[in-house]
Design a protein around this nucleic acid. Structure first.
Lengths: 229, 229
DNA sequence: CGTATGGTTGAGGTAATTCAACCTGTGTGG
DNA sequence: CCACACAGGTTGAATTACCTCAACCATACG
């Protein structure tokens, strides 16, 4: 499906935002819009990787299956995020939709040509990449030594921020887009530990659970303190 | 001190390798070579970041001090690595020399101008950044759920590879450039656990310890197996 | 209905942490 | 030259936070 940049919700934030109107129009001619259901695989590890994409709606996970068959979520991809490895012949990780998602998909060779043609695009991708690197390192810092409580608290805050429309403010009430199992894979915890920590946070009056996935934050300051520790 | 690209050991692998001879010469005029002793800080978190650099000799760590004063090593930087955040006004992390090190230092504004002038440089940085991101995610995967044994085994293999001259082959005998404490910060383990795991590996005949830091690998295959699990 | 998926809760085991003592080599100053 | 302090390292004992195993509940769906 042809791209419709005019109504794209990430037109100000995605890599292509660095381009002029004419340049963007040219790039748009190369791309197609594709939708994915929750659970659908966008790229599978080991695949020939001849495409890359910008996420416009939804949520993706980048995950890795280790030798024992355990899955670890390496990163979540939010709208305006870029996926696809430009410098590897095959995909290193799985990319799967966690929610109904829409992507602008480009052929890798054409996108690479576009990078050469539009220096601003290269710089914008460099910026995105730096952000991804920063996020990945934040995840490492979190993994470091923190208690399960801190990990879960931090996770809730991150999801609250992502659920909010405004980038600076966190949503007070929202639905988790991840199952307990997925949250566990993201945080390096078991399903049971995630569930217990949520229960503990609720008992402490920091959050309230509504249904299986609903979260309402009652004491954001407390949650923040737990997430930092 | 003026740069001497002709004798630079990373001239084939660093970002500047993507440039033509003339372009490289022009870039070289903008940079200075600086040396750092073990323990010296290259960039401190919170500093105005008006410089960036390529590591030519030695080893750096990128680390982060959390709210409780615990330090976590987010990444090691090996020769040909690039440090300095191009898109953040202040440094997010500390960068400290772990061994006697030499860097090509550039003013950030001048380097940024060079990126605009030389598209190949932007692309080379993008590639480096992608590699860093991949490494960071490998670290996340490692952190995931693995046992202390697996972490230490993996760490030893990584250090063996880094200690070797050839990129594909691992050194059989080498000196660890990190203290037990630093290794612990890198792996998310305590000093004692690192020490005990090394002792265990030695008792199993997988490695041999010579002095405080010397490591000889006796059974690389076994070490690899432990590092994967 | 019956099955499947996701979630919660409990009991018990274990690996890593914490706390603490001790060892070794290296420097520094009297 | 010895005494001492200090940083890095090892080792042991006790604790604990998380994992494992297992049962059970809720909701959705064919």
């Amino acid at each position: 499906m042809k791209l419709e940049c005019a109504t794209c919700p990430v037109r100000e934030r995605a890599a292509c935002a660095a381009l002029s109107e004419e340049e963007r129009a040219e790039l748009a001619r190369l791309g197609n819009s594709r939708s994915y259901e929750r659970g659908e695989t966008v790229f599978a590890a080991g695949d020939d990787l001849d495409a890359c994409a910008t996420l416009t709606h939804g949520l993706l996970k980048i995950s890795h299956l280790d030798a024992d068959g355990n899955e670890r979520i390496l990163s979540l991809v939010h709208p305006a995020g870029f996926v696809g490895e430009m410098f590897s012949p095959v995909a290193n990780h799985d990319v799967v939709a966690l929610a109904e998602s829409k992507l602008c998909v480009f052929s890798r060779s054409e996108y690479e040509a576009a990078i050469d043609r539009f220096p601003a695009l290269a710089k914008a991708l460099l910026r995105r990449s730096a952000e991804d690197l920063f996020d990945a390192r934040a995840q490492i810092a979190l993994d470091a030594k923190q208690s399960a409580q801190a990990k879960v608290a931090h996770f809730l805050l991150a999801m609250a921020k992502a659920a909010s429309d405004s980038p600076c403010h966190a949503a007070e009430e929202f639905e988790l887009p991840l199952t307990r199992g997925e949250a566990g894979q993201l945080l390096g915890l078991t399903i049971e530990t995630v569930s217990r920590q949520l229960g503990k946070l609720e008992k402490q009056g920091v959050i309230e659970r509504t249904g299986a996935r609903g979260i309402r934050i009652r004491d954001a300051a407390r949650l923040e303190a737990l997430g930092a520790g």
